[in-house]
Simulated scan of single mutants.
Amino acid sequence: MSELLFVNNMGGGILLFLILFGIAYSILWIYCVVDIIRSDFKDPNMKLIWIIIILFGQVIGPLVYLILGKGTKTTTS
């Protein structure tokens, strides 16, 4: 119970939001990296390029990959 009071005194809503956002972002980042490693791309260099985009574009990199990454993968039927 004292932990909840501590969080509430620290501006509880904001702190809780930041913690949850950080966890969600970490899961998204890990998902994107694992997906890149497991996927086959039309151009072999695209795997390295996507890893670099995700590493250096910390906030927007995973979102760009999720939006544009499907077009660079090979399709297996």
Rank of each mutant, 00 (worst) to 15 (best):
M1Q: 09
K73F: 05
L66F: 14
L28A: 10
I37W: 11
F17T: 10
D40A: 10
K73P: 00
G71F: 10
L68T: 00
L68Q: 10
V59K: 00
T74G: 07
I60G: 04
L5C: 01
S2V: 12
G12E: 06
A24W: 15
K42L: 12
G22I: 06
I27Y: 13
S2T: 12
S26G: 15
L55A: 13
L63G: 11
L55T: 12
N9F: 11
L16G: 01
I60P: 08
V59M: 09
L18M: 13
V33G: 00
V64P: 00
S2G: 05
M46K: 14
Y65V: 04
M46W: 03
I19V: 15
F41I: 09
I36K: 04
I36V: 15
I36P: 03
I53Q: 03
I52C: 08
L28F: 04
L20F: 14
I37A: 14
I30K: 14
K47V: 08
V64M: 14
G11I: 02
Y65S: 02
I37E: 13
F6P: 00
F56P: 00
T72Q: 07
S39E: 09
F21A: 14
G61V: 01
F41E: 05
G61R: 01
V33E: 03
I54G: 02
T72Y: 11
I49K: 14
I49T: 06
L4W: 10
K47G: 01
L15R: 01
L16V: 13
V59C: 06
V59P: 03
T74H: 00
I54D: 04
I49S: 04
I67N: 02
I27L: 14
I19L: 13
T75K: 13
V33D: 00
S77Y: 04
L66N: 06
I67Q: 03
V7S: 04
